[in-house]
Amino acid sequence: MASQGTKRSYEQMETDGERQNATEIRASVGKMIDGIGRFYIQMCTELKLSDYEGRLIQNSLTIERMVLSAFDERRNKYLEEHPSAGKDPKKTGGPIYKRVDRKWMRELVLYDKEEIRRIWRQANNGDDATAGLTHMMIWHSNLNDTTYQRTRALVRTGMDPRMCSLMQGSTLPRRSGAAGAAVKGVGTMVMELIRMIKRGINDRNFWRGENGRKTRSAYERMCNILKGKFQTAAQRAMMDQVRESRNPGNAEIEDLIFLARSALILRGSVAHKSCLPACVYGPAVASGYDFEKEGYSLVGIDPFKLLQNSQVYSLIRPNENPAHKSQLVWMACNSAAFEDLRVLSFIRGTKVSPRGKLSTRGVQIASNENMDAMESSTLELRSRYWAIRTRSGGNTNQQRASAGQISVQPAFSVQRNLPFDKPTIMAAFTGNTEGRTSDMRAEIIRMMEGAKPEEMSFQGRGVFELSDERAANPIVPSFDMSNEGSYFFGDNAEEYDN
């Protein structure tokens, strides 16, 4: 993207840094990872977990959730003011799984939030270390993106479920800051804005008074975040219109849905970061690795190297396929839920299948599930090659597409044709070009129609051997075009429920 120079890199967003050079960025990201790792080690000690239990991804998720809940100030305040039966607002906890007599047992633990905050700050040299908290939120978000298709949420806001490739980060909490905003897809931002506008339509006082002023500035800020994701002048001009509207209503909703559809071809720039579970960072720190000293990046080879040398386990339900569970977590670790499966298959070195073909449910185990038949197995999170994460949407291309997802959002900077089903997408653009945004709409449609099938995206960008740390010898991959490109292809993934 041309304006790259004016933006802070995501590592800076990730670490609240002012302008830093590459070495400083690597050190501050490393410091953040160190903090998460030290916190995780301490929690495993508190909970008396064995090494194996500490490497269980379900335990990692519970521990991450506990610290996120302990620092969720708004919710904590709300819980104190609106006490609900049987919930102690000062405590947080969740299921911890232990191996007892050759069987997995679930144990519900409860801790004072104050105590968890103390352990977290102690692991982070006394700081609140917001960057580390956001990092864990993005890992949870990436896992949700890989596990669930947001059909219901899309339909509720009037969008087409086939636009799911635009929904990265749709389950990120509001408090995820600049680093969170960077990884949100165009569809996620559109959905947040539509929800806001709908509230304004239904509630006369939404934009009024002292609160209304705050609401208005939040609305304009979200519009600017979305505008910054678009790469064409016409899309940005249309966002200006939406932002400046005196009284946002149905016309703005129409414009936003139009823009979301246009992003299936004229893709937005959305950041991709490899955020790993805390149970990967903990053992690495415990083994003596100093992330701050060595430096770390979320968008280069580092996460690949770390996963190459990590042992992570997962509980497996009786009829689940461990290899499929591994694929789910591998995609989440690489922030690749909406990437082209052919690119992923090449990088991973084994075939990556669409969601609907995987015999696996989510990673988390519900409290009512029976533990008797639970097994555990090693997650295979290694890769054959590594590639640089991208934040450009890439230019655009036609490809055989599917009944489910009709476009992709690249996660890796790797040369390819970008699949999208042009006739299906263009069919949504018939007729409606009147109104105050008509010239911009016409211009956007013209650009979409001009998108050429034979153009290559990320020209000359390749993948790298894991021994090639400096990215000196790019390998331009070859793809098996007979395979499906979309992950949520004609899909039956479970729906995400809060």
Rank of each mutant, 00 (worst) to 15 (best):
A2F: 10
S3Q: 12
S3I: 00
S9K: 10
M32E: 07
R38Y: 13
C44T: 15
Q58A: 05
S60V: 07
R65H: 07
V67K: 10
F71C: 02
D72A: 13
R74D: 10
R75L: 05
E80R: 01
E81Y: 00
K90N: 01
P95T: 02
Y97A: 11
K98G: 13
L108E: 10
L110P: 14
D112A: 00
I119Q: 15
A123D: 12
M137C: 13
T146S: 14
Q149V: 14
G158L: 01
G158E: 10
S165P: 01
S165G: 00
R174M: 02
S176H: 13
A179W: 10
G180L: 03
V190H: 07
E192G: 15
E192D: 01
I194F: 12
K198N: 02
K198T: 14
D203S: 06
R208W: 10
K214N: 08
T215A: 14
K227F: 11
R236K: 15
M239T: 02
N247L: 06
N250W: 03
I257K: 12
F258T: 10
F258D: 10
I265H: 12
G268E: 14
V270W: 10
C279T: 05
V280F: 12
S287L: 10
K293T: 09
Y296A: 12
S297M: 10
V299L: 05
D302T: 02
L306P: 08
L306N: 08
L306Q: 08
Q308N: 14
V312N: 10
S314M: 08
I316Q: 10
N321T: 15
N321E: 03
L328K: 03
M331E: 10
M331H: 06
S335M: 13
L344H: 06
R355M: 04
L358Q: 11
T360R: 10
Q364A: 00
N368V: 14
S392I: 05
S392A: 00
G404A: 13
V408I: 09
P410A: 09
P410G: 00
A411V: 14
D421E: 04
K422M: 13
P423K: 15
M426P: 01
N432T: 01
T437C: 06
A442F: 07
E449I: 13
L466T: 00
R470E: 11
N483K: 15
E484Y: 08
G490W: 11
N498S: 08
